[in-house]
Amino acid sequence: MRNLRKFAFLGVLALVPLAGCRQDMHDQPRFKPLAESDFYPDMRSARQPVEGTVARGQLHEDTYFYTGLVNGKPGDYMPFPVTKDVLERGRQRFDIYCTPCHSRMGDGNGVVVQRGFQRPPSYHTDRLRNAPLGYFFDVMTAGFGAMPSYAEQVPARDRWAIVAYIRALQLSQNATSADVPPGQKVPSPAPEFRGDPGSGATLPQLQPVQNESGGEAK
């Protein structure tokens, strides 16, 4: 009998640590990004800046860099030099944010357009070929027609990189044999792809090419 009591006591004692099984460390009293808060009427823990205030470093003094406009008219120069890195960045960002509608070619026949969105104009028209650089930046920043502003999704420097890449796209679609560097053959062999076509903005994998001519095979 005494033994039984002892066992029962030990059994209850063994259950005591269970009382410590709480999730306090798991769910700490702090907000993760964009978490809900019942403190504010709009339930947002992430607050908008107070109206009329400017966050540090966001005064945007360089108006051309942030609007593409000079005295209200689109300017026609890049605010920073265009290097190969800038163009690569521009292509990458173009492929992420612009191709859904404008397509990789820039002809305005992207997949979202094929699903019923209003077709944007092709970049390869005389009007857009002659449009100043700042025009493209302004459209990305402020939106145009059915196209919303992309200023929230794409930072200003990336928008400029996309502008540079759009110009490169336009040139590529309008190239002549004079643009081919000496020593390169035209047409170059079509690239061979393997496997799945990749997804989203990722180019499909190129088939490794055995390179005998010593020319550019990429």
């Binding site: 492929d95 992420i96 944010y97 859904p100 997949v111 979202v112 699903r115 999704q153 997804s199 989203g200 903005a201 990722t202």
Partner: peptide, 9 residues
């Protein structure tokens, strides 16, 4: 999968 949007969009 179908539309092909990049994650970063």
């Amino acid at each position: 999968g179908a539309i092909g949007l990049d994650c970063r969009y």
